[in-house]
Design a protein around this nucleic acid. Structure first.
Length: 564
RNA sequence: UGCCCGAUGGUGUAAUGGUAGCACAGCGGUUUCUGGUACCGCUAGUCUAGGUUCGAGUCCUAGUCGGGCAACCA
């Protein structure tokens, strides 16, 4: 079935696949894979790759996409990351059926392929240490020179490699190198390391191995083993492609996938480096991988983003080979668009100002009808409770309202959403600070439900919550994590923590929310009318409601106010 | 002075030799019991110089600018 969510725009990778299909390459098969290393949590940049790889597979029946963990470096990898990655890819809405693989599953095969390489004289065991080898590698401009071990006999290489596996040498004492060309202008082709000795307990194979294959060898062979047709990766691997092809050519395998590179996602005011993200977590600059300010999938989930919004974003940004910096406003647009259609509306007062309706009888309660979602009548209606004392938003009242301010002011009339028209008759101030502590208003009983029999118009409608019925809640407002659009793009990328936004988190407490949210559970999403989309946080509980602001509503008043 | 890749409005992208289009952002308007949504309109672009062609964003040449590459990381 074609993708019904949106007609996916074409891109150069789809074009390549279409061209391959046209000449019946791979017998018409299309098989991709998403190959994360389990050394960190997935971020929105990985979502781009996931949507691309799984998206291509989803396009037509018979196409497949594997999930494969590229777990060849036990030092940095962990099962915690495996679990989070599996959860995140599923949450995004993709499925690999029974094709969950690990490069570590192929360790034995990989070893045998390495032996094959040695036997054909294409690899040798080198006893130069990392440091000793450095001068042999040459520079970007100058060729390297051959290792003294380069001409070791095949039988000796075989024996040494076997002993490497058997644990007879110290870490780093020997490596297996591909015998390619020390003068190649591409430094990755200058006899790259294929296997290194590393006594580290692997999260899946334990201590079964003390030698581990390098990426360039493990990755192409793993792709080949799985019958991958199109091996899609990011631009920084472009320079590795000749090596990818070299290994598969030497090994004479039946499946030789085509590596295709695309530009990774860069998003403004955040960063996509797993290493840097890990630092933010480890150094306590954020609350964890799922801190709602993080660009991780788990952070976005906790923030209230939906899988559909993220998938849609990934479609819209396109796929090219050009390094770009995507405007965060596009991501925000995508969540608003999705949440607007789906969210239950509710009234919540974030910065409460008490209002007494002087002519409303004490002790009386009115039950009013409110629409749950004007975008979706099927979501029905609910009751909101009105009484003599209510809270309104502090910034919905101005003592000296400027032009075009449609809300409350002395002597002004506004509509309470789904309620009555009220007119402000007095503003009571704290005698010491001058701060307004309470408003005195009157209501027009004829305007119940929000319209007047005489047809008079009010320009403003404001949200409110009955004091007697309001629930207390904590509300967490989030802003961009960095003050710089490209925090790692400065001259000194190491100082990125200097660029962190001290106001990225604002906690509001106590806020006043409608009683209909009483039983809200983590993950529940609401639109707080006139304010934004909010999501119940993981820390929330029935007696202690906590909401995260996913994204604010578009606010044209703030633009007008700024201009004045 | 090495190798690889790239260049289209402010941003992200489309146009496969034939009217430079879409989305976001910005600006203006209509509708509205959310200053939301929806709808309408406006602003704004082919890195430069040559060449091929009836015709070039697209092909060729030269230049300019940007990114990547020298881990026993992926």
């Amino acid at each position: 079935m074609p993708n019904t969510e949106s007609q996916a725009p074409t891109n150069f990778i789809r074009d390549i696949i279409a061209a391959d299909l046209a000449v019946n390459k791979n017998n018409g098969r299309v098989h991709t894979r998403f190959p994360p290393e389990p050394n960190g949590y997935l971020h929105i940049g990985h979502a781009k790759s996931i949507c691309l790889n799984f998206g291509i597979a989803k396009e037509e029946a018979g196409r497949l996409c594997n999930l494969r963990f590229d777990d060849t470096n036990p030092v940095t990898e962990d099962t915690e990351y495996i679990e989070s990655i599996i959860e995140d890819v599923h949450w995004l809405g993709f499925d690999w059926e029974d094709r969950l693989y690990y490069a570590s599953d192929y360790f034995e095969k990989l070893y045998n392929y390495a032996v094959q390489l040695i036997e054909s004289g294409k690899a040798y065991v080198c006893d130069l240490s990392e440091e000793e080898f450095r001068p042999y590698r040459g520079t970007l401009k100058e060729p390297g020179k051959d290792s003294p071990c380069r001409d070791r006999s095949i039988s000796e290489n075989l024996e040494l490699f076997q002993k490497m596996r058997a644990g007879e040498f110290d870490d780093g004492a020997y490596v297996l190198r591909a015998k390619i060309n020390m003068a190649d202008p591409n430094v990755h082709m200058r006899d790259p390391v294929v296997y290194r000795i590393r006594r580290a307990t692997h999260h899946r194979t334990g201590d079964a191995w003390c030698i581990y294959p390098m990426y360039d060898f493990a990755h192409c062979v793993s792709d080949s083993i799985e019958g991958i047709t199109h091996s899609i990766c990011t631009l920084e691997f472009e320079i590795h492609r000749p090596l990818y092809d070299w290994f598969l050519d030497q090994l004479n395998v039946e499946c030789h996938p085509q590596q295709i590179e695309f530009a990774r996602l860069n998003l403004g005011y955040t960063m996509m480096s797993k290493r840097r993200l890990l630092e933010l977590v480890a150094e306590g600059h954020v609350d964890g991988w799922d801190d709602p300010r993080m660009p991780t999938i788990s952070g976005l989930r906790r923030r209230g983003y939906t899988p559909a919004a993220i998938r849609n974003f990934c479609e819209r940004i396109g796929v090219t080979k050009f390094n770009s910096l995507t405007d965060i406003a596009l991501l925000e647009h995508c969540v608003r668009e999705d949440l607007n259609k789906k969210s239950q509306r509710v009234m919540a007062v974030l910065d409460p100002l008490r209002v007494v309706i002087e002519n409303y009888p004490e002790g009386e309660v009115d039950e009013l009808d409110a629409i749950n979602n004007p975008e979706d009548p099927e979501m029905g209606t609910r009751s909101v409770f009105f009484s003599r004392e209510i809270y309104i938003e502090r910034d919905d009242f101005l003592e000296d309202p400027p032009k075009k301010f449609f809300r409350l002011g002395p002597g002004r009339e506004v509509r309470l959403r789904y309620g009555y028209y009220i007119t402000c008759v007095d503003a009571i101030k704290d005698p010491d600070t001058g701060e307004i502590v309470e408003l005195r208003c009157t209501y027009d009983p004829e305007t119940r439900g929000g319209s007047s029999p005489d047809g008079r118009k009010v320009k403003g409608t404001i949200h409110w919550v009955s004091v007697a019925h309001a629930l207390n809640a904590e509300v967490r407002l989030y802003d961009r994590l960095f003050t710089d659009e490209n925090p790692l793009g400065s001259e000194n990328p190491d100082n990125y923590t200097d660029l962190m936004n001290p106001e990225s988190l604002t906690v509001l407490k106590p806020c006043k929310v409608e009683p209909s949210t009483r039983d809200a559970v983590p993950g529940d999403k609401y639109q707080f009318e006139r304010q934004g989309y909010f999501c119940v946080d993981n820390d929330s509980s029935p007696g202690n409601l906590i909401f995260n602001r996913t994204v604010a509503l578009r606010d044209s008043w703030s633009k007008i106010a700024k201009k004045q």
